[in-house]
Structures are given as structure tokens and as C-alpha cells.
């Protein structure tokens, strides 16, 4: 193959547990004893010896709806080697949690270290309205790596400056500890939301950050409006 191409897009030596290749591929340096949870179907390539299994909870059941709602299933990756993950061309952002907690829209999870504590977080007033619309959240806490996906380059807003309202479809993640509530902008008359006709935003106050993507909900990449 063309040498230029190889030079430009070839593999590089691993330097961290998670690493970007371009902005759409996440490379994970797998090691025995340090499993990874990844979105099913996100493996695009690997070398070495890696096995993939459905993630089962402690009772041995497939933990699908239980933690991730209806749409996302996770697989447990075990082994040693280089694992490359991507999610249908979404941008990948890698983070390292250091004892902190992060709340991520389930649709935007790509992978995370198995040692992180995970729980479902529901937003009062939102879960009912947006169930089935990807609005379930996974709260991750502890020390380890997380890879999330966004449609397009995200922007990070600080609600500490001013109360911040985010379209639910554009909401990716936020730091735990923010005050979250929903706001129905009646004056907007269905105008501003992208969602299912609800002119509803999620309002954040407090210090922290909110990650916003420049596109609509990633579970439903081609949202035909109207």
C-alpha cells in the first residue's frame, strides 16, 4: 500500500490506556486483568488475544435494559492486545476520571474501564418524557478511563457562569453535582427543540461542565423531522 498512507494513518506505539487515532477511533491498550466495557459492535479491529462477551450482571443475566436502557448493549472485553473502537463515525473523546463522577447519556457511551462504578441516573421530569429517546444516563465514578462519543466537535459549557439550557438531543454528558431540571419553554411553541415535538430543555445550574454536541441525538442519527 501507498507509503504515504501508511505513514499518515499507521498504528503508533501505545502510550496510554486509551488513545485517539484520528478523532473517530479510540485505541485501547488491553491488559489481562483490566477489562473494559464497550458498546456492542464498536470493535473495528484488534490485534493480539481479546475475547468479547456479553456483559452479565452478578446474577448471570445479560445486563441489557438493566443498565443501559433499551438501545445500548455493552460487551465485556478481556485479553491482551490493541483494541480499536469506533461508533459509526462519531467523534470520540477520551477522559480520565480521577475519583470524580460523570453522567453520560447512554447513547454516547463508547467504552469505560470495568473498575469504574456505574449506575443509572434518571433525571426527574425527563425520564418519562424521553424514555425511548435515549435519555437515560449512566453515572460513572471512580478512577479510570472513559471514552464517549459525540456527533461532531463538542463544546463544553460552564453553568457556573450562567444558567445553561441544553437541547436534550444535543446533551452528551455533564459533571455530577450540577443541579439538573427540565424546563419547558412554552413560549417556544415547539420551535426550538429538536426532539419529539417537545419544546423542552434541560437546565443546569451550579459549577461544573456540560458537554454539548452540534447535532441531534446519536441514537437516531437520521432523525426525519416532521
Amino acid at each position: 500500500m501507498d507509503q504515504q498512507m501508511i505513514a499518515a494513518y499507521g498504528q503508533t506505539a501505545p502510550t496510554a490506556r486509551m488513545q485517539a487515532h484520528g478523532n473517530k477511533i479510540c485505541r485501547v491498550a488491553m491488559q489481562q486483568g483490566y477489562d473494559l466495557f464497550a458498546k456492542q459492535g464498536s470493535m473495528i479491529a484488534y490485534t493480539g488475544f481479546i475475547t468479547f462477551n456479553p456483559w452479565r450482571d452478578s446474577r448471570g443475566q445479560r445486563a441489557r435494559g438493566a443498565i443501559t436502557g433499551e438501545k445500548v448493549e455493552l460487551m465485556q472485553c478481556t485479553g491482551q492486545g490493541d483494541l480499536y473502537l469506533a461508533d459509526y463515525g462519531a467523534d470520540v473523546v477520551m477522559l480520565q476520571l480521577n475519583g470524580e463522577a460523570l453522567s453520560v447519556n447512554g447513547a454516547n457511551i463508547l467504552a469505560f474501564d470495568a473498575q469504574l462504578t456505574k449506575s443509572i441516573e434518571s433525571i426527574p421530569g425527563l425520564a418519562a418524557k424521553f424514555s425511548g429517546n435515549g435519555m437515560f444516563n449512566i453515572k460513572l465514578e471512580g478512577t479510570g478511563w472513559v471514552a464517549i462519543t459525540t456527533q461532531g466537535t463538542p463544546v463544553v459549557l460552564n453553568p457556573g457562569e450562567r444558567e445553561t439550557y441544553v437541547d436534550p438531543d444535543a446533551l452528551v454528558a455533564w459533571s455530577s453535582g450540577l443541579r439538573v431540571k427540565t424546563k419547558s419553554s412554552m413560549r417556544a411553541m415547539n420551535l426550538i427543540g429538536r426532539g419529539s415535538g417537545e419544546a423542552m430543555q434541560v437546565a443546569f445550574t451550579g459549577s461544573g461542565y456540560v458537554v454539548v454536541q452540534p447535532s441531534e441525538d446519536s441514537t437516531d442519527r437520521f432523525h426525519i423531522r416532521g
Partner: peptide, 27 residues
């Protein structure tokens, strides 16, 4: 390719596995 691709080198010592739908080309 959709987005920046990945070129994986295959050697007799290093076998490469890939999702069939993500493969674009090979030697």
C-alpha cells in the same frame, strides 16, 4: 473512508482481526 482511517500492518508474527464491515481495503 468515513473519517480518518487506520492502517494496520500485518506480519507473519502479527495477525490482524477486523470487523468485516469496517474493512475498506487490504494488500
Amino acid at each position: 473512508t468515513s473519517g480518518k482511517p487506520l492502517v494496520m500492518q500485518v506480519t507473519p508474527q502479527q495477525e490482524v482481526f477486523a470487523d468485516a464491515d469496517a474493512v475498506v481495503a487490504w494488500s
